[in-house]
Nucleic acid binder design. Structure first.
Length: 124
DNA sequence: CTCCTGACTCAGC
DNA sequence: GGCTGAGCCAGGA
């Protein structure tokens, strides 16, 4: 995917203030520091919990949008860093999490349930 | 315009 | 209790 194309997704020429992606970005930005959430939680918050994949795909543009979206705080429902390979470098995701006092072991967030941040509950 | 794929999730075997 | 398949939406070829 070229940068130009990615930019188009994030910033559809001109208008388009509310796309599925921006919704995801908005929620993701609300994640407090040191907390994590899951794709499904965000998707559910948007009303389409079955579209958790889209959340992840939307995160594809995380870091390219402004302000930056803390995609490293978004993991799958098991707390596993499934998207770390999409970071550059991949270790960046874990480093950022550990920097926020979030322990990560074997690509999985420790005490995930305790650090879990539910957008539908906290953001509501 | 049609088909494929993708950072997920749930249900079934 | 681990693996497989299907469902989901949106963008890219």
């Amino acid at each position: 995917m070229s940068k130009k194309e990615t930019l188009k997704i994030i910033r559809p020429s001109g208008k388009r203030e509310e796309s599925f992606f921006e919704l995801v970005y908005e929620v993701a930005r609300q994640i407090p520091k040191g907390r994590v959430t899951s794709y499904g939680a965000i998707a559910a918050c948007l009303g389409t919990k079955l579209s958790a994949r889209m959340v992840g795909w939307a995160m594809n543009g995380a870091g390219k949008v402004k302000p930056k979206v803390p995609a490293h705080r978004v993991v799958n429902r098991n707390g596993m860093l499934t998207g770390r390979h999409h970071f550059s470098p991949p270790e960046k995701m874990q480093q950022l999490l550990e920097k926020e006092k979030v322990k990560v072991e074997n690509d999985t967030v420790v005490d995930f349930e305790r650090l879990f941040w539910d957008p539908a509950k906290e953001l509501l």
